[in-house]
Design a protein around this nucleic acid. Structure first.
Lengths: 219, 219
DNA sequence: CCATGGAGCGGACTCTAGTCCGTTTCCCAC
DNA sequence: GTGGGAAACGGACTAGAGTCCGCTCCATGG
């Protein structure tokens, strides 16, 4: 899975480990590079094939064999490049996630720097919720890895947690780290799916309520 | 799955649907009864075999075939009685969950009735956290159903959500329903596992922090 | 411009959850 | 009792994720 973690995430991973003090996120974008030309080519066709098939038929109706066949590679290649089904989903999400992460790091306020922490917090909740809704199936897939522990500790989770913890701390919230994790739990794909898809709630309404929760967590 | 839902949960299911006003939980214990003697016998041996094998080898190392063989029934019987792997886990959890639910409904304060809502809230967080930790593997399994939407809307989730929403409302919290769901998300098995098992945090510490989160959600 | 070693490939194979359907067993009506 | 019909059973079968390992073919260095 290491190869799947974008450079953006890796960069601050070290500063994170076991630290009590919350530090701001610092990051540099360095995408993973296969060492051999054929590997790079295959990686690209797999991602393209997967994106196409998922879009055409929906995530549920595409098997790993389908993807391997469509990409013109063997299953071994698939699994060498992406670890498992959820790893492939993460790779597909990576680009879009990076856009959100950059917006957070250096985009316009209030999502980006410049606005006061409580405002940034609200903007982040809205933006993250939007991201989750726009990519529900893929996020769900990316979190579904076997041997639990799928969502946490994987993917860009650490990035978002760190950012939220930082904002919460800036805003003077007690126990920012835990509250960041709780907030991300409330924004988890399964929860969002339940509210928006299963219960059919209005997205703006969900957003309002979650922003309310975020504010409550400040005190 | 209906057959798996304990009477305790079914009883207030109706009062719940689509209602905006939060009502207190009312419940009666009426366990599911198979119609035929052989079915009842088989159900019992399956549950016993599963409990024994899970205890002996750990949840990960027990397949559905193992359980069927150990119980002396065919796979068809297994799936007729329990829908799927996670349904079996839920059935195993049911008895223990019922104990917690009864303690909430009619046990001693502060978990049971009698104490002021904020105190009951803290007691519930502690009790529920304890339950999750004591039954981590089974709860994880019971939440792992395929086609997402495993945790929510299944099992005793509705019961706990309702209870929490009620307490939050009594304590004057805004948007009690959403906040109940957020709190349950923070207490979800995967999250608890991450804190307690993966990060090795002290249970009492996690409890304290979560009680803090619960209090924050009151305001 | 080869040679070579190791990264990368492919697809047959394994393992397990979950389905299907012909057969058995129970229970009730008579 | 006993006969009929439905509920329940069992185990062969299907499907799809993930593994394994012998073969291929890049890229480097002589």
């Amino acid at each position: 899975m290491d190869r799947e973690r974008s450079g953006l995430q890796s960069a601050f991973q070290g500063a994170l480990a076991g630290r009590e003090t919350v530090v701001p996120v610092e990051a540099v974008v360095v995408p993973p590079q296969p060492r051999r030309a054929d590997a790079a080519r295959n990686r690209k066709s797999v991602l393209e094939a997967a994106a196409r098939l998922y879009a055409e038929r929906g995530v549920e109706r595409v098997t790993m064999d389908d993807i391997a066949a469509a990409a013109g590679v063997g299953k071994g290649t698939l699994y060498r490049g992406f670890t498992d089904r959820s790893g492939l989903a993460m790779a597909l999400l990576d680009e879009r996630a990076r856009a959100l992460q950059e917006a957070v790091l250096e985009g316009a306020a209030p999502l980006g720097p410049g606005a006061p922490a409580p405002e940034r917090l609200g903007a982040f909740v809205a933006a993250y919720l939007g991201f989750q809704v726009d990519n529900l199936d893929l996020v769900l897939l990316s979190e579904s890895g076997r041997g639990p522990g799928a969502r946490l500790g994987k993917g860009s989770y650490a990035f978002y947690r760190q950012h939220l913890a930082w904002l919460l701390q800036q805003a003077g919230a007690p126990d920012p780290r835990t509250r960041a994790e709780v907030l991300l739990g409330a924004l988890a794909a399964e929860q969002v799916r339940h509210w928006v898809v299963v219960e059919g709630r209005d997205l703006a309404d969900v957003e309002r309520r979650l922003v309310g929760v975020a504010r409550a967590l400040l005190g």
